[in-house]
Simulated assay, not measured.
Amino acid sequence: MQQVLLIVDVQSTFSPPEWLVDGIRLLSASIPAVASVELHDEQVTPFQRQLGWHPASEDECLVEVDHVFVKHGYGQTSEAIAHLKQMGVERVLVCGMQTETCVLAAGFALFDAGLCPTLVTDLTVGSSLDRSGKLGIDLWKHHFGNVTSRAEVMAQLMLAGQ
Rank of each mutant, 00 (worst) to 15 (best):
D112V: 01
Q98V: 09
G133R: 02
C102Y: 09
R131T: 13
N146P: 12
G114R: 00
L110Y: 03
D130V: 14
E152M: 04
F111D: 04
L119G: 04
K141L: 14
V125I: 12
T118A: 08
G133L: 09
G126M: 06
E100S: 07
V103S: 08
F144V: 09
C116W: 15
D138R: 11
V125D: 04
D122T: 11
F111P: 00
Q98N: 12
Q98T: 02
L135F: 14
D130H: 15
F111T: 03
L119H: 02
T118L: 02
C102P: 02
D112I: 01
V147K: 04
T121Q: 10
L115C: 03
L104M: 09
G145D: 04
T124I: 10
H142N: 11
L115H: 04
G136Y: 10
L104Y: 08
V120M: 01
G107N: 08
T121V: 13
L139M: 13
G145P: 03
C116N: 15
S132K: 09
K134V: 14
G136S: 09
C116A: 14
L104E: 04
G107S: 07
N146Q: 15
V103Q: 04
F108K: 01
L129Y: 15
K141G: 13
Q98S: 09
L129V: 15
G107M: 07
E152L: 04
T124P: 06
D138V: 10
S127P: 10
G114E: 05
A151F: 08
I137C: 13
H143G: 00
L123V: 12
H142P: 02
T99P: 00
A113F: 00
E100L: 10
R131S: 12
G126C: 09
E152Q: 11
L129M: 13
V153W: 02
F144H: 07
A105M: 07
E100C: 08
C102T: 02
R150Q: 12
G133H: 07
F111Q: 04
E152P: 00
H143R: 09
G107K: 03
K134F: 12
D122C: 09
C116I: 05
V153N: 05
A151S: 11
G136R: 05
A109P: 01
W140M: 13
V120R: 06
T99K: 10
K134C: 15
I137K: 14
Q98W: 12
V120W: 06
H142D: 14
G145M: 06
N146D: 15
F108Y: 13
D112Q: 03
V153K: 01
A151Q: 14
T124C: 13
T121N: 03
W140Q: 13
A113N: 03
V103N: 04
T99V: 05
S149H: 07
D130Y: 15
L104N: 06
T121W: 02
S127L: 09
T124G: 10
L119F: 04
T148N: 12
R131E: 13
P117S: 06
D138Q: 14
P117F: 04
V120Q: 07
Q98M: 11
K141W: 12
G126N: 10
F108S: 02
S128T: 14
A109G: 09
D112H: 08
L115W: 03
Q98K: 11
A151V: 10
A106D: 01
A109L: 04
T99S: 14
T121L: 02
